[in-house]
Amino acid sequence: MYVIKSTPALMLAVAIALMPGMVLHGLQFGPAVWLQVGICLVAALLAELAAAFYRQVGLVKTLADCSWVPTGLLLGLSLAPLTPIYLDLLATIVAINLIKHGAGGMGQNRINPAMGGLMVVALAFPTLLYPAPSAHAPWLAQVDLAQAWQAILRIGPRLHFDAMASATPLANHYQGGFSVHWSVFGYLLGGLALAALRVIRLEIPLMLLASCALTCVALGESWADSLTELLYGGLMLAAFFIATDPVTSPVTFKGRLVYAALIGALIGTVRRFGLYPDGICIAVVLCNLLVVDIDRRMRPAVFGNPPAGR
């Protein structure tokens, strides 16, 4: 009935499904992307080891749930490439040690770890981040690994491509205009594969994308602009891989529709009016916090009982 039957396998399936998007993103914008992902994955592993140590829950047991793998990958993909390594570490510690283990371990956290970690870094240290890669200015593709390491470790001169202030890949539409991210197709492919394997619930990305586009139209953008919005890698990543995190999304079909619609609308609104480009992580975190209430209000009727109150 379900192809993927255990929780660690579900986590690894998400990780594998991220691969096509990650590979395409790196092909378009250079190896710095992959370096970033690798650093975050290692950081996630270290954070998980630390948590196992100080929570005394048993190393194998903690690592074996594999939930740190998608967290690390998602952080690596949503933080801008060339982010200083101490910020990578900070984001990972916030995500894994504070948000996840602070709440009591896997399944207990109320907000998505990767988005929480990203939000802290993006809100607190915007000037230390390089702009997100854009198809208009594919400067990042020229950065080789040596330069990337220098930038990440902050040992060389700052690379002079940061005319624009902070922007993470989740916000890279900010420059306006049409720029196709190859990763869109990778995320779409991976996301649909996850839906086919029934790892994620397809209603969340569909509703999220629709709601985001409709919100943009409602706020005065043209249909063409609103729809091309959807072709930025960050939105697709959020729709298929971040908003669909089961731990932090509602448990009923109707609840998921409401939740996804809210995220989509918030992303659209923040993008239209917000000064700050990182709409997605704010939208996701806010809606994560609504999940408990959504679940409580949307409890289905129980067989043989009158419709549920409250």
Binding site: L10, P300, F303
Partner: peptide, 16 residues
């Protein structure tokens, strides 16, 4: 292992 709220159980429950 801990519950990840995948809600498969809610889908499977015949009494909702």
């Amino acid at each position: 292992t801990p519950c990840i709220r995948c809600s498969r159980c809610a889908d499977a429950c015949p009494v909702g």
